[in-house]
Lab assay of single mutants.
Amino acid sequence: TRVETATETAWISLVTALHLVLGLNAVLGLLLLRWQFPAHYRRLRHALW
C-alpha cells in the first residue's frame, strides 16, 4: 500500500505540474497575442462584449 500511495502522490504532482504548465502557456499565449495583434484583439473584444 505504501508503494501505491507513493505512485498516487507522484501522479498528483505530475498532473498538477501539467496543469500549471498549461495554464502558464495559455496566459503567455494570450499576452503574446495581445502584444502582437492589438487591433485584432480589440476587434475580437468588441465582438465578444
Rank of each mutant, 00 (worst) to 15 (best):
L20T: 09
G23Y: 11
P38K: 08
L22V: 14
L44G: 00
L33R: 02
G23R: 02
Y41D: 00
Q36D: 03
T16N: 04
L31P: 10
V3M: 02
F37R: 06
E8A: 05
A39C: 06
W35V: 14
L44S: 01
L31F: 09
L28R: 02
T1D: 00
R43C: 00
R45L: 09
L31N: 05
W35T: 14
F37C: 05
E8W: 06
H19Q: 04
L20I: 13
L18C: 00
H40S: 09
G23S: 09
W49F: 09
E4N: 08
A26S: 07
T9I: 12
L30V: 11
A39Y: 11
L30R: 02
L33G: 05
I12Q: 05
T5W: 00
A39S: 13
L14G: 03
V3I: 13
H40R: 08
R45C: 05
L33A: 04
L30W: 03
L14N: 05
I12D: 00
L28V: 07
G29V: 15
T1K: 12
L22F: 06
Y41Q: 05
H19M: 13
L48R: 00
R34L: 08
L20N: 02
L48A: 13
T5M: 04
V21K: 04
R2T: 15
T5N: 03
W35S: 15
A6H: 04
T5K: 03
L44V: 11
G29P: 04
L28Q: 08
Y41C: 13
T1V: 14
L20R: 02
V27M: 09
L44K: 06
L32D: 00
E8S: 06
Q36T: 14
R2W: 14
T16Q: 07
L20D: 04
R43E: 05
I12N: 05
E8C: 02
L33K: 03
L32F: 03
T1S: 12
A10L: 08
G23W: 08
Y41E: 01
L22P: 09
A26E: 04
R45Q: 08
V27C: 11
S13R: 07
E4A: 13
W11Q: 08
R2V: 15
T9M: 11
H46T: 13
L30K: 01
A47M: 12
A10P: 01
H40L: 11
A47S: 12
L18Q: 08
S13E: 01
R34S: 05
L30N: 08
L24F: 12
S13H: 07
A17V: 10
A10R: 06
L24I: 12
V21N: 05
E8D: 12
L44Q: 00
L22E: 06
L30I: 10
H19S: 15
L22Q: 10
R42V: 04
G23T: 11
N25M: 04
A47P: 07
V15P: 06
W11N: 07
I12R: 07
I12K: 09
A6C: 11
F37G: 01
N25P: 09
L24V: 12
L33C: 14
T1W: 03
R43I: 09
W49C: 09
I12H: 09
A6G: 14
A6S: 15
T1Q: 15
R34E: 02
R2L: 14
W35H: 15
T5D: 00
R45D: 00
A47Q: 10
T7A: 15
T16M: 09
L18E: 01
T7R: 08
W35P: 05
T9N: 01
H46W: 07
T7Q: 11
R43F: 04
W11M: 06
L44W: 04
Q36H: 15
L44P: 08
H40V: 09
A6P: 07
G29A: 14
T7P: 15
V21D: 03
L33W: 03
L24E: 02
T9Y: 06
T1F: 12
T16F: 04
L31R: 06
R45Y: 04
L28W: 07
V21F: 10
L20M: 14
V21L: 14
R2E: 13
L32V: 13
L24N: 04
S13C: 15
F37Y: 13
V21M: 14
A47F: 11
V21W: 01
N25R: 04
A17K: 00
H40P: 09
A47V: 09
V15F: 11
A6R: 11
L22H: 02
S13D: 05
F37D: 02
S13V: 14
R2Q: 14
L32S: 05
A10T: 06
S13N: 05
L24A: 12
Y41S: 07
R2I: 14
W35N: 15
F37N: 04
W35G: 12
A6Y: 07
L31T: 10
L18R: 05
A6D: 02
E4I: 14
L32T: 01
W11C: 03
G29Y: 01
A26H: 00
L24R: 03
W49Q: 00
L33Q: 04
L18G: 01
Y41R: 02
G23H: 01
H40E: 09
L18N: 00
V3C: 03
Q36I: 12
A47W: 14
T9G: 13
L18M: 09
H19V: 15
A10H: 01
T9Q: 09
L14R: 03
S13Y: 11
Q36L: 12
L14I: 08
P38D: 12
W11I: 12
A17T: 06
T7K: 11
E8Q: 02
H19D: 12
L44T: 06
L32K: 01
W11T: 03
R2K: 13
L31S: 06
I12P: 01
T16D: 10
L48V: 13
S13Q: 08
Q36R: 15
L30E: 05
W49L: 06
Q36V: 14
Q36N: 06
S13P: 06
L18Y: 00
F37Q: 00
L14K: 03
G29C: 15
L28N: 04
A17W: 00
A10M: 00
E4S: 10
L20P: 01
T5G: 07
A26M: 11
R2C: 09
L14Q: 02
R42Q: 12
V21I: 05
S13F: 14
R43W: 04
H19E: 05
E8Y: 03
L20H: 09
V3G: 10
L33N: 06
L24Y: 10
T7D: 01
T5E: 10
H46N: 11
A17P: 01
G29R: 08
F37V: 06
P38A: 12
N25Y: 08
A47E: 04
R43N: 02
L28C: 13
G29M: 15
L31E: 03
T9V: 13
L32R: 06
A39E: 12
V27H: 08
W35A: 14
W11H: 07
H46S: 03
G23M: 15
H40F: 11
R2N: 12
L31V: 08
I12T: 05
T7C: 04
V27P: 05
L20W: 00
A17F: 09
A10G: 11
Q36W: 14
L28F: 12
V3S: 04
